[in-house]
Design a protein around this nucleic acid. Structure first.
Lengths: 196, 196, 196, 196
DNA sequence: GATGAATGAGCATTCATTCAT
DNA sequence: TATGAATGAATGCTCATTCAT
């Protein structure tokens, strides 16, 4: 009873989280009705409350889910090839692939974190973790001689992440991904060129 | 009747827009009650409806206000000094000063623009305008010999704006502005170094 | 000061009453805004309150106005010609002319009188007065030998008024006046024929 | 799910319609609060919205309900006995019994139909149907020799219905039903007498 | 007298949440 | 577990009324 049930429960929770992500991404947190999420699953409103105490709770579960996903997935960004400049385009695609339309939910999370200190802390921590991970990549490149030794690795990492985030905003406004990718590649190449 | 009233009305509208910006920035669009905005001004709910047809209408007025403000204010970013690298820090401060805590409202605008095509078009147009303006600055620097002639000016401009936007997200998550500024400066300098 | 002013006041009141009648006739009491009435007169909302204490008060003034008008105007319905049967059509036209689109306001008055006992009493009294007046006409016809001596004059009068009122309802529902008039004439003629 | 639920739903809807009729009859459409109706049923405001999209929608449901009821019930007015004159009183009672205090709601419907063309059409159609039904009765009487062959059956029918409607107005104004019934009987008898 | 800006009580409507089945 | 009918607090919006000018 315990294990099976809890596994079932975990699965059910995950399904709900998935559906909620889709809904929140489409309509935003406040404008998404619990019923919308339920309908997406062919469930009834009440059922969601068997798994999540409240809408807030569900949203936090999504945040946690996304944060943990971020935790796991941020590996191997830079490691693949030797030269970042030549890789730039592929790196952009890699990140995009795993963000998979989460832009909007991330936006909601950022907005919500303005109100919810706990969430803000988690998001902050996630960002820091990403920064650190990217910084590792940067350091690798330094060691490999693709970047100068006196480069401020953490600042560069922060900038790279910010650049990516800013391009996500562009996407939400309808700016074509081709332009975004070109901006990314241009910047990366210039930066690399100036740092070796 | 016409001039006085309309001037008065315009002033009243502006005051309400200001208050609404503060409220929306603090609580977000959906969680801000019309009464909150009214209270901030020492007015009553009903009064706001003398100037704006609906909450939506007020929000769109804010968007227009911000977009027009953006239109006017995006002059003179790069023109001041000769060398972008040495200026980087100051440029960041300049932008920040005029954004003046609008980050949150901008976020709301981006989120809303996912639903409201008209707003999205306006935001898109604004972004494009900013890109163009920044591109002008980039071109100037090219002419002045601070950047290589073969640099993709528009892509670089898009990247710079995105970088700034991404750092705004950082700020919202509580990442200290010192770190953000350092990231900005590091990236700009590296980029400049690699492009001349 | 007193006389002129009060005359002015009376005129102003009458104008407002006229405009209010039009508005109430068009939109009904509850859905008519004080501003609608004001606009119709090129006045401002506030001005109406110089003449009437409240919307209710204005409505009651309308009622009184209509009731008094009814009082004055209900003369000479039957007296003109000798034979009611041959007159029927013209009688219908006569009444219609003086009701002049008041149907709708009358409806409002009837509806309101369900809530307002004072108004109901006044409306009741008016109806009784009309009944009595019509009864006089009926009696005349009896004396002139157009109706049998044993006719129940008051009942016939009530029926005639009711018939007219019912046709007013028809008009409001879009039933053509030609059909209504024919119904009136048919009924009157049959009734006369059977009562002599 | 389908049958049970829909049957349940239909029942619930009907209950709400009944309560709404009572409320609207008492206070009129505009002055009746949704909560009033809910309270009458021991329900909460929100529940009504599970069954009707809006107050307007509920009102239209009432109209439809009344119109359909009218449709079904207008049978057997004249058919019972041979002589209309001797029947007049009973006919009046018959109609009254089935209108059952709907006068006020009917009034609201007429008033509303001045604004709502769809409702007006339905009310118009209902009236026409009633006219036709009554006309059938009149024709029967003609065939049975109680009325002259050259009587304008449809006009007479319209007049009879109008007479009834006008007496309903009387009732709303507090005119005693005895007087109304007498008026009805007097008019019918005179009319019959003159038409055979 | 006249104005129209301001008020705030009032009401329709929504939707997260509960709970009997 | 799952359901969905019921709830009622919350909130956008309206409009009669007031009052400073």
């Amino acid at each position: 009873m315990p294990k099976v049930t809890s596994m079932y429960k975990a699965e059910a929770k995950e399904k709900i989280v998935q559906a909620a992500i889709e809904s929140f991404a489409q309509t935003g947190f406040d404008r998404t009705k619990m019923e919308d999420i339920a309908k997406r699953l062919g469930l009834s409103k009440g059922t969601i409350y068997l798994y999540f105490k409240s809408k807030e709770d569900l949203f936090l579960a999504i945040c946690e889910y996304n944060i943990q996903k971020g935790d796991k997935e941020d590996a191997g960004l830079f490691v693949r090839k030797e030269n970042v400049a030549s890789d730039a385009e592929q790196i952009y695609d890699n990140i995009r692939r795993r963000e998979q339309g989460n832009d909007r939910v991330m936006l909601e999370m950022v907005a919500e974190s303005a109100r919810n200190p706990k969430l803000r802390k988690a998001m902050y921590a996630l960002h820091v973790k990403v920064h650190e991970h990217v910084m590792e990549g940067v350091r690798n490149k330094i060691e490999q001689g693709f970047l100068r030794k006196d480069v401020d690795a953490i600042s560069l990492a922060i900038a790279l992440v910010a650049l990516y985030d800013g391009l996500a905003v562009n996407r939400m406004l309808g700016i074509g991904d081709a332009a975004n990718k070109r901006a990314w590649v241009t910047m990366i190449k210039a930066m690399i060129a100036g740092s070796c």
